[in-house]
Design a protein around this nucleic acid. Structure first.
Length: 400
RNA sequence: GUGGGCGUCGCCUAGCGGUUAAGGCGCCAGGUUGUGGCCCUGGAGAUCGAGGGUUCGAAUCCCUCCGUCCACCCCA
């Protein structure tokens, strides 16, 4: 499963012209935790932060995007042709209570397109993600999208939102009373019972977009339609950190159960500047490999089985041991997959193992073969057996 | 951060107050003094998650801890 998913990710990303980048497993904590993240679960309890021996504050990678953004600045990628298209397959760490499809260490495939704010890139990234899932055969994925505006329109929207909730504070859950001050956008995706009645009538981000954001969102939708990509607008799909802008999206399988999201992303036009670079737009997605594999299994999708073992070299006499190892090496050099037995076990035991490993052939080397430079070649499916010169056996096993 | 389930040979499981802690898979060996798959026989392998307590007696009951799984929250 692992290889299948990774190979598919690489193939699809490269077909869109994205190049692979590797970033460090840990960075200065500020790379991952921006001031705007205060009050989020990530900042409060999920990040693995620590001091190193020199007293520097570091943190394990919480996602793929921040390290890439840091690298973009640090390595002067703004001088490259824009946008810079990058993809990664990395481990990420979050201190959560583990459960099905959720681990403290998991892996993400992600892409980032940095240096261009055009809506066509939003569509490209979403299309890439959808194509990746389709290449694996994942069925029935829902695509949810939303726009959360930008610095121009969001402040006014948040005022509207606060005004709407101002007289309802006493009725909200504890989390949301805190969110009201710290992170009001998150009021929209609260799952707690007390807050549900108010969500339907809450102001929607899309109704308060500035002209530029509105045009951007409309264009993205038009492009998705042009690509025949079905989507639903989800007004409660938000991002809790201030450098996120405009388009936000998520892919969800239709099946029941928890961990509904297998991947999501969005625009982060404010991130590069926050990290100390020139103001630079960017968009990307991240998708969890473990969750993809979970869904592949649920849908009965299986990877190709590993290639069979071509030969098992059995040693029938201790004197033939060295020659057996050499024969195995020569066979491998010819492209065959070969495992050797050892003189410590009876020939019978070695043959049992050859069978248990589903080897196509058994090659027996013993006293008799040593004498005349031959090898006994046994076809383990037909049980046909013959002695032939070693060189001939090499040729025989090399075949297609 | 909250709630719940489960921890017995490498794996799966039985046993639920007194058993030499049982079985299946896998592993090793023999039945074939150089030959597999099926079958038969034998063998190795378990301080019953850890510590404490109750009891004449604990894998079995109680407590604490640890681990693991599931759900909420959140997210990938």
């Amino acid at each position: 499963y692992w290889r299948w998913v990774r190979d598919t990710a690489v193939r699809i990303a490269e077909s869109y012209g994205y190049g692979e980048i590797q970033t460090p497993v840990f960075e200065r904590v500020g790379v991952f935790l921006r001031p705007g993240a205060a009050g989020t679960d990530l900042a409060d309890k999920e990040i693995y932060a620590f001091k190193d021996r020199g007293g520097d504050d570091l943190a394990l990678r919480t996602d793929g995007t921040h390290g890439v953004a840091r690298a973009y600045i640090e390595h002067g990628m703004s001088s490259w042709p824009q946008p810079v298209r990058l993809f990664y397959i990395v481990s990420v760490f979050r201190y959560d209570r583990p459960q099905a499809g959720r681990y403290r260490l998991h892996h993400q495939f992600g892409v980032e397109a940095i240096g261009d704010g055009e809506p066509a890139l939003d569509a490209e990234v979403i299309d890439l993600q959808r194509t990746f899932y389709a290449a694996l055969g994942l069925q029935d994925l829902r695509l949810l999208i939303n726009s959360i505006g930008d610095d121009v329109c969001r402040p006014a929207y948040l005022e509207k939102l606060r005004a709407y909730y101002a007289d309802k504070l006493d009725l909200l859950c504890g989390d949301c009373r805190r969110r009201y001050d710290v992170n009001p956008l998150r009021l929209l995706d609260c799952k707690n019972e007390p807050c549900q009645p108010f969500k339907a009538d809450a102001p929607k981000t899309v109704d308060y977009l500035c002209e530029a954001c509105d045009a951007h969102f409309s264009t993205v939708q038009g492009l998705l339609q042009g690509l025949d990509i079905a989507y639903e607008i989800d007004h409660s799909l938000v991002r809790g950190i201030d450098y996120y802008t405009r388009t936000a999206f998520e892919f969800q399988p239709q099946v029941e159960g928890s961990q509904s999201t297998i991947g999501g992303g969005g625009r982060y036009d404010g991130l590069i500047a926050q990290l100390g670079g020139n103001p630079t737009p960017g968009i990307g997605f991240g998708t969890g490999l473990e969750r993809i594999i979970l869904n592949l299994k649920r849908q009965g999708l299986r990877p190709l089985p590993p290639p069979p073992l071509d030969a098992f070299v059995a040693v029938a006499d201790p004197a033939a041991e060295a020659l057996a190892l050499r024969l195995a090496r020569d066979l491998r050099a010819g492209g065959a997959r070969v495992v050797t037995g050892g003189s410590g076990r009876s020939l019978r035991s070695q043959m049992r193992q050859a069978s248990a490993l589903s080897a196509r052939y058994a090659l027996v080397l013993g006293r008799q073969e040593l004498k005349d430079g031959t090898v006994t070649l046994r076809n383990l499916s037909t049980s046909e057996e013959q002695r032939l010169p070693t060189a001939e056996a090499l040729v025989r096993l090399k075949g297609p």
